[in-house]
């Protein structure tokens, strides 16, 4: 199951809630303001590293670009809308609004 998070972790508990329910191997995709979670060196960088021990982590590149985030936490993969579609093709979706 693909989990998407679209709110900044500084504003909303969505990411922390989502991480508690993610099953091993489930991909997590950050979109919209959610991408602030993966800016390298912020206070969530350790949480992103821990999450990647069990789940691949993606961030929507156009949302990173729009927000001037050029360096993401190690291992986080930037993908386009077409990559988002590929993840949806492969998984059911759980959007943590």
């Amino acid at each position: 199951m693909l989990h998407t998070i679209n709110t900044s972790p500084f504003e909303s508990p969505a990411m922390e809630e989502c991480i508690r329910f993610v099953q091993q191997g489930d991909p997590v995709l950050f979109i919209e303001n959610g991408v602030y979670a993966v800016q390298n060196g912020n206070r969530f960088t350790d949480a992103i590293a821990a999450l990647q021990k069990t789940s691949p982590v993606y961030a929507l590149q156009p949302d990173l670009d729009a927000r001037g985030i050029s360096i993401v936490a190690p291992g986080v993969k930037g993908i386009g809308y077409d990559g988002f579609v590929d993840l949806v093709e492969a998984h059911q979706v759980n959007s943590w609004l």
């Binding site: 199951m1 508690r20 329910f21 099953q23 489930d26 059911q92 979706v93 759980n94 609004l97």
Partner: peptide
């Protein structure tokens, strides 16, 4: 959480 997470993955549709 783990058990709710397990039930989530069984779903065809999840709406928040």
């Amino acid at each position: 959480s783990v058990e709710i997470g397990r039930r989530m993955t069984e779903q065809d549709v999840v709406i928040h």
